[in-house]
Measured scan of single mutants.
Amino acid sequence: MQRVNMIMAESPGLITICLLGYLLSAECTVFLDHENANKILNRPKRYNSGKLEEFVQGNLERECMEEKCSFEEAREVFENTERTTEFWKQYVDGDQCESNPCLNGGSCKDDINSYECWCPFGFEGKNCELDVTCNIKNGRCEQFCKNSADNKVVCSCTEGYRLAENQKSCEPAVPFPCGRVSVSQTSKLTRAETVFPDVDYVNSTEAETILDNITQSTQSFNDFTRVVGGEDAKPGQFPWQVVLNGKVDAFCGGSIVNEKWIVTAAHCVETGVKITVVAGEHNIEETEHTEQKRNVIRIIPHHNYNAAINKYNHDIALLELDEPLVLNSYVTPICIADKEYTNIFLKFGSGYVSGWGRVFHKGRSALVLQYLRVPLVDRATCLRSTKFTIYNNMFCAGFHEGGRDSCQGDSGGPHVTEVEGTSFLTGIISWGEECAMKGKYGIYTKVSRYVNWIKEKTKLT
């Protein structure tokens, strides 16, 4: 034993070699072989497995989906700052455009905790909710729209109204504003409101030439003092309507412009014939205590009207009353817009006519005020429907199939267009061939041609 100890002390290297040989010859039971080890760690190889990531292109799944990435790591994937920024906006807080917040056709661009709407022409605001041009839906104005110097929408209202708090709607500024039905039992019968379409306001006024200088022999019209197929109006439903009495009662109609003036057809009036105007009328054979009678003290036909040349060209006249009318729910003026808007309103496509005229061709006159909704007829169809001249200051309205029309005794009465609950004068009943005849239409004086003249002559002093 002493000898062994001496050998170990003198030859430590020998001992180490012996131990190493023993270990190498022993069977290893701690580690699995290569094949079995792979069965336990069965993990798919990654895209760049075996390579240094710093030297390969980034992978979106590896960089940002398996674990949260930084902007720089995302930049490695896209290799483009702009594309990385677009991805980053949604990656950080989701897609803010998912709810489609942009209105009126706006395009949404996502941002971090926010979004941006790219608005089409005519709109602005956070969600493109603000109209900035009158060309689109009248700028959301209830009545009139004008573009300011910086191309912003400025709404306005006709006389007797003021802008509401929203700067879009119009509200009454006087007790009985024009064009409004205020009798409670008839307010439910107000005709369907007309909503502004998209309009090209630059070209809204037709490029028409008034044929002022045409000389033409007097034409022989049949029954051209021209509501057939209409309905009984309720008291106060058309408070701007008046009836004219002269040699015979209810020979023509008219509309209240203001307390002192009536507008009617020029062919209705004769110099030297006494005319009485009755406002607030409903049943011409009954006294309903809503009527107001006034005498006409002055007749002003349009300066281009000449019955000797043509009885229905420039067929418009103004009547001055001896005493002002007292405005109330049964006696209310009709609204008159400017030339541009009167023309736009007419193009809405349908209007209402009213009167006490004959209820059928050569038949009896109506006792109760009649009204009828009539569609506008395109000019080409209008011209083809008659052998008589249709001037540019006239328009056609009615039904091709016949059966409904204005008729004798309705002449001078109103053709009105309702705009968001307020009625505007767009025409004056003038003439036609018979009444409600198939293929024939009622012919009306186009008020847009005469609004400046009306307003100039009827100013209240």
Rank of each mutant, 00 (worst) to 15 (best):
G246R: 05
L325V: 03
F395C: 02
M8G: 14
E259C: 04
A9W: 14
V273N: 13
H314I: 01
V195S: 14
E231N: 14
E418I: 11
A164M: 13
L327Q: 04
A337T: 03
T16Q: 11
C252T: 01
T417K: 01
T417N: 08
I344P: 03
P172K: 06
I454Y: 00
G402P: 09
E434C: 10
R358T: 13
T417E: 00
N104V: 03
S448G: 08
T332K: 08
K234V: 15
N42H: 12
Y91R: 05
G94V: 13
E259S: 08
R404N: 06
S255E: 02
D212T: 13
T290G: 06
V374M: 09
I428V: 09
A173M: 12
P235I: 10
S204Q: 06
F87Y: 07
T426S: 03
P172E: 06
G236N: 05
L103A: 06
V174H: 07
I336D: 00
Y305W: 10
A173P: 00
L103H: 13
I300A: 04
V174D: 07
M6R: 14
K146W: 10
G355L: 07
A26S: 12
H415L: 04
K39M: 12
T225E: 12
H302F: 06
F121M: 10
D212N: 11
Q408H: 15
R180L: 06
N166L: 02
T190A: 14
W88F: 09
F345E: 01
N343A: 07
C141Y: 00
S25N: 12
F345M: 07
A233L: 07
A308C: 06
E53I: 00
Y115K: 04
D338L: 04
E270F: 08
C252Q: 01
G125V: 02
C382Y: 02
A149I: 13
F224N: 13
P120Q: 14
N100R: 12
A317F: 00
R226K: 10
E418V: 09
V447I: 11
S354V: 14
T332E: 03
G349S: 07
H361M: 11
V77I: 14
I299L: 05
E165W: 08
T194Q: 13
K446H: 05
F399V: 13
H282I: 09
I15S: 05
V183M: 10
N138V: 06
H34K: 12
S411R: 15
D110W: 10
T218Q: 08
G50Y: 05
K260T: 01
G442T: 14
E61A: 04
F388S: 11
I299C: 06
G13R: 07
C268Q: 00
N151C: 05
T209P: 14
T381G: 04
V296C: 03
C117Y: 02
G442L: 07
G230N: 13
V153G: 08
Y341H: 06
K293G: 04
E208V: 09
R62K: 03
A173T: 13
Y330Q: 05
S411M: 15
W431P: 06
Y22H: 09
A207Y: 15
N113P: 07
F71S: 03
G272L: 06
N80R: 04
R3N: 13
V153K: 09
S169C: 04
E76D: 03
R373Y: 06
G272K: 09
S217R: 07
S220V: 12
V242M: 01
F348A: 14
G349Q: 05
D198R: 11
N36G: 14
S187F: 12
R46C: 00
A37L: 02
D150C: 04
P12Y: 14
P101V: 06
Q143A: 02
V326D: 13
D111V: 11
C145T: 04
E98V: 10
D198N: 15
I297D: 04
S220G: 10
A250V: 10
F399I: 12
G351M: 03
E193F: 08
Q216R: 07
Q96V: 11
E420G: 12
Q167I: 05
V174G: 06
N328Y: 00
K260G: 04
V4E: 12
H267Q: 06
T381N: 15
I40H: 09
R46M: 01
E208S: 14
E86Y: 08
E54L: 00
W356G: 03
P301Y: 09
F360K: 15
R226G: 13
Y91V: 05
N306A: 07
R298V: 03
D249S: 12
E288Q: 07
E270W: 07
G349E: 04
T158H: 10
K347F: 05
P414L: 15
S411D: 15
R449T: 15
G105N: 08
L103F: 07
I214V: 13
I210D: 12
V269T: 07
F176A: 05
Y391V: 06
Q167N: 09
L19A: 10
S204W: 09
N48K: 01
I334F: 00
A308R: 12
E53T: 00
F71W: 10
R404W: 15
K438S: 15
R83T: 12
P197C: 05
V248W: 09
I390E: 05
T218K: 10
K234G: 10
G432C: 10
K188Y: 15
F360L: 15
K146G: 07
T290M: 08
G229M: 15
N38I: 10
Y341R: 06
C28E: 05
V368T: 15
I429V: 11
T81N: 12
G21V: 13
M437Q: 11
A279D: 00
Y305P: 02
C97H: 03
N166P: 02
A380R: 07
L23D: 03
V228E: 11
D93A: 09
H361N: 15
T426R: 00
A317W: 00
T386P: 04
V447P: 03
T133W: 06
I136K: 12
H314N: 13
A149G: 08
N283W: 08
A337W: 00
Y330I: 04
I428Q: 03
A266F: 02
L32Q: 15
P301F: 11
I112T: 12
E79S: 09
N328R: 00
A308I: 07
W118T: 15
I390Y: 12
I297S: 08
N310P: 04
E86H: 06
V227M: 11
E54P: 01
M6Y: 10
L383G: 15
C435R: 04
L60D: 02
T186G: 11
A265T: 04
V368Y: 06
W431I: 09
N245L: 08
K168D: 03
V331Q: 00
G427S: 00
T461D: 15
E10S: 14
E286T: 08
C170M: 00
K362I: 04
A164V: 07
E288G: 07
G421H: 07
D93E: 09
D198E: 14
P12E: 12
K311P: 14
L41Q: 05
R373T: 08
C18Q: 05
I297K: 11
K51A: 10
S169H: 06
T29H: 13
G94T: 14
K457G: 05
S114F: 06
L20V: 12
R43A: 02
E433V: 06
V227E: 15
Q216K: 06
S184Y: 11
S70H: 04
G253A: 15
N104L: 03
